[in-house]
Simulated assay, not measured.
Amino acid sequence: MVTSPIKVLYVDDEVNNLVAFQAGFRRDFDIHIAQSAEEGLQILQSNEMQVIISDQRMPVMTGIEFFATVIKRFPDPIRILLTGYSDIAAVIDAINTGQVYKYLTKPWDEETMRIFIQKSFEVYTLRKQNKLLTKKLVDTNRKLELLARHAVLS
């Protein structure tokens, strides 16, 4: 069984980071890069991503602000916050509000990043399966209720 590579969007205002990320992970994942939050949102409109990684400190919109926008329109992808700074209050807020699955620091370690992208995909897959199973359960319950009503009326 051939599986598609994990679709990852990486948003960072530093071109060198984008190039390094794409070079380091293009063989393992389907990498999309954006140099701004706005560009990232445009990519999300036309591409279904499974994992989104964003730098925290960017001009115009921070990573957390970007994720707050993303979660409203594209709630399914798993989000990872990446920063070279230890803005602990912002990180705690992002984690507590459910916007971020994981927080990693720059410079990233390739193996650690690879592991967390894979773990994020596992969470993404489990959530998708859970939604599907919940929908099936609701549909089955409706059918059973109809059958029960019909049996009572007969």
Rank of each mutant, 00 (worst) to 15 (best):
V2A: 10
T3V: 13
P5W: 06
I6R: 00
K7M: 04
K7H: 09
K7G: 10
V8R: 00
V11W: 13
V11F: 05
D13R: 03
D13A: 05
E14H: 06
V15F: 07
V15P: 03
N17K: 03
L18M: 05
Q22F: 00
Q22P: 08
A23R: 12
G24Q: 07
G24E: 01
F25D: 04
R27C: 00
R27F: 02
R27T: 11
D30W: 08
I31A: 05
H32S: 14
H32V: 09
I33P: 02
I33H: 04
A34T: 08
S36K: 13
S36D: 08
S36H: 03
E39G: 02
E39Q: 14
G40H: 07
Q42Y: 05
Q42M: 04
Q45R: 15
N47F: 12
N47W: 01
E48C: 10
E48L: 13
E48I: 14
E48Q: 13
M49Y: 02
Q50R: 09
Q50F: 11
V51R: 12
V51D: 13
I52C: 08
S54E: 11
S54F: 06
S54D: 15
Q56T: 04
Q56M: 11
Q56Y: 15
R57W: 05
M58S: 07
M58T: 12
P59N: 02
V60F: 01
V60Q: 08
V60H: 07
M61R: 08
M61A: 12
M61P: 01
G63Q: 06
G63F: 07
G63C: 13
I64P: 00
I64H: 09
E65N: 06
E65D: 15
E65V: 04
F66D: 00
F66K: 00
F67A: 03
A68T: 13
A68V: 00
I71F: 02
K72C: 00
F74C: 04
D76I: 00
D76R: 08
I80T: 01
I80V: 15
I80W: 01
I80P: 06
L81I: 09
L82V: 08
T83E: 01
G84W: 00
G84T: 03
G84N: 01
S86D: 10
I88Q: 11
I88A: 08
A90W: 02
D93V: 05
I95Q: 02
G98L: 06
Q99P: 00
Q99E: 12
V100C: 07
V100H: 04
Y101G: 09
K102H: 04
Y103M: 06
T105P: 00
K106R: 12
P107D: 00
D109W: 02
E110H: 04
E111I: 11
E111W: 05
I115L: 14
F116N: 15
I117K: 09
I117Y: 02
I117C: 02
I117G: 02
K119A: 10
K119L: 11
K119R: 13
K119S: 07
F121H: 15
E122L: 10
V123D: 10
T125N: 07
T125Q: 14
L126G: 06
K128T: 10
K128C: 09
Q129W: 03
L133H: 03
L133Y: 11
T134F: 09
T134N: 10
T134Y: 05
K135S: 15
K136R: 14
V138A: 13
D139V: 11
R142G: 10
K143F: 07
K143D: 11
L144V: 14
L146R: 13
L147K: 12
A148V: 15
R149L: 12
R149A: 15
V152S: 09
L153P: 01
S154D: 14
S154K: 15
